[in-house]
Simulated assay, not measured.
Amino acid sequence: MQRLTDKAAAGARIRLAFADPDSAHVIERDALEQIGGTLPGRIRNALNFCEPLHDVDGVAIGLHAVHLYNSVFRFDNQMIVTPHLYRARGYQHPVLHLRELSPHGIFASFADQFEQVWQTTTAYPSEPAS
């Protein structure tokens, strides 16, 4: 967490979008991976791990309820994408290491997908009512 805090202090914009552990798609993914109802707890564990970031300027955490087709981790002009394969467990999914070489192509497609998913997120922890 300290590295993310330091990056944010240096001006990096950090956005973390997690699947809402209570969403129907998480329950579906858990069943497809046959992991016995543990996926919601794993997501909650990751969210708890991120708790030190809640008050860090430049860090935003959101929950989404869109279908879980892949995981995307972007770092400037590089990206790690993990496509979710049918009936495969997390550790069995392949990992793609992508670099941005042009404004078009697969990198841009996954970057756009993240932006679209981010637009559906709700702040986590939820913002207090004004």
Rank of each mutant, 00 (worst) to 15 (best):
M1I: 10
R3E: 08
T5F: 00
T5W: 00
D6L: 15
D6S: 15
K7V: 02
A8G: 02
A9N: 14
A9W: 12
A9R: 14
A10N: 08
I14K: 10
L16N: 00
D20S: 11
P21N: 10
S23E: 15
A24C: 05
A24T: 03
D30F: 04
L32A: 09
E33T: 03
Q34A: 15
L39P: 02
G41M: 06
I43H: 03
R44E: 03
A46H: 05
L47C: 05
L47Y: 08
N48C: 08
D55Y: 09
V56Y: 03
V56M: 09
D57F: 08
A65C: 10
H67Q: 02
Y69F: 06
F73T: 11
F73A: 13
F75W: 13
D76G: 02
Q78K: 07
I80C: 14
I80M: 07
V81S: 04
T82E: 11
P83S: 12
P83N: 14
H84Y: 07
L85Y: 01
Y86F: 12
R87F: 00
R87H: 10
R89C: 05
Y91W: 12
Q92V: 01
H93A: 00
P94E: 03
P94N: 07
P94Y: 07
H97S: 10
R99Y: 04
R99Q: 14
R99H: 10
E100T: 04
E100C: 05
E100F: 03
L101P: 02
H104D: 12
G105T: 15
G105Q: 14
G105V: 08
I106C: 13
I106S: 11
F107V: 07
S109P: 06
A111L: 05
A111I: 09
E115D: 15
T120I: 05
T122P: 05
T122C: 05
E127I: 15
A129L: 10
